[in-house]
Design a binder for these strands. Structure first.
Lengths: 228, 228
DNA sequence: TAGATTGTTAATCGATTAACAATC
DNA sequence: TAGATTGTTAATCGATTAACAATC
């Protein structure tokens, strides 16, 4: 019984927050059941928002009780596909790429990076966190052979588009892009951007707005409008 | 002449995309002026959306011509505060933290990480990408003394809240959080989350939806509604 | 002048918030 | 039963998209 409505991106991004909080409650072993109100209180979020998000996953709760804690955790896990391991390839074995290769927590969240690729001859042939680093040219064939569906890009910005093209050519269906680049991919490919400069822009603008306001109180009324 | 309306988060996050594209045009040296339609075309975005975003920054263009390319680049830079260098401290000199310390591009985007902190005795006292790694306990005093306003958290999730508390105590006004943790900070503190699991949830869910649809065509109509 | 583009106002869309009915 | 919580429907809010007027 899957939902018939589109799932809002914002809701999807909140589910991990609930998931983590619920897991903590579970290991703490305090309660058997949890209500949306409980969850909202511990997270400082709007109770109605939490209710809608949980409801969206399709789980059925009991009025006056809430949701069985363990069930809810597993339900969210399953809803997100975090209980079904999917392979991934990573391109760009630099410092960020290596950090990502070192995150073994990804495995318990549905993703396992099975191979790394790079163009640097100094890196090719060696191992990085246990994974062999192969030449980028070997990527499309590797993807086709192993049927891996996820591609992670951790290259410099100017290499990202060509890497994405290679991934798509190999049959990758989802790209997680950490490179500072605006990628063009076919419609059937899921693109998740993790461009740090998007966040840095937001942070920088807000910080400037607030510190400037403090300096020139006469502009206060205007600046208030810019608060998030 | 600053805008009187609140600036949408989504618009702020699109500005770096325009900025980068405009910079490329500038170095390519092709055109003197650029229109929103041009920009929208090269980026594959809705022209009206681009217009609204650019307009929001307060720059004034010329009908039939567009915006002077060099002016627009500098305008966005200034709007985001990327031309005014702000100091930052980083906590957590692990693999991700080290990668962030190595990003010298941050400096040309308004942020310079001036010091790193950690609790690991094996890291304290050494240098990481030229920056001294200090004990975490030294953070509040350091922040007070140097008047740094930005704090970057790259610790494990369970340490993040206490680190955030230390930062706030020292006078940090903006926190860039890379740890997988839902942080509670006072209202006056800007919080920018870079939680990878938020993105991974979205990517994983969408990938599962699409691949499952392919397996069971009879559910196609339902699955379509879940497309982004 | 004609026409493309900016600047601005209105309409649509979707997400969040609020209200209320159902239920254990 | 009474009351808290789920489930569901309506209202609000904000962002995106569309329409149109102003201008060079």
């Amino acid at each position: 019984m899957k939902p018939h409505h589109p799932i809002p991106e914002a809701s999807l991004r909140r589910l991990p927050v609930y998931y983590r909080s619920l897991q903590e409650m579970l290991t703490a072993g305090a309660a058997q059941a949890v209500s949306c109100a409980d969850l909202a209180r511990t997270l400082g979020l709007d109770p109605t928002l939490v209710r809608k998000d949980i409801e969206m996953t399709g789980i059925v709760g009991r009025p006056r009780v809430g949701y069985p804690l363990a069930d809810l955790v597993r339900w969210i896990e399953s809803f997100l596909g975090w209980n079904r391991l999917k392979g991934a390839v990573l391109v760009g074995a630099g410092s960020l790429g290596s950090a990502l290769l070192g995150y073994d927590r990804f495995r318990s969240h549905g993703m396992e990076i099975v191979a790394a690729f790079d163009t640097d001859p100094g890196k090719i042939g060696k191992r990085n966190h246990g994974r062999p680093v192969q030449p980028l040219s070997a990527l499309p064939d590797f993807v086709r052979r192993t049927q891996v569906l996820i591609g992670v890009i951790a290259t410099p910005g100017d290499a990202a588009q060509s890497v994405a093209d290679l991934m798509v050519a190999g049959g990758i269906l989802a790209i997680w892009n950490f490179a500072p680049a605006h990628l063009h991919v076919p419609k059937h490919v899921i693109l998740q951007n993790e461009d740090l400069y998007h966040s840095l822009a937001s942070l920088s603008f807000k910080l400037e707005s607030r510190t400037r306001r403090a300096e020139t109180p006469e502009e206060r009324e205007i600046s208030y409008a810019q608060d998030n």
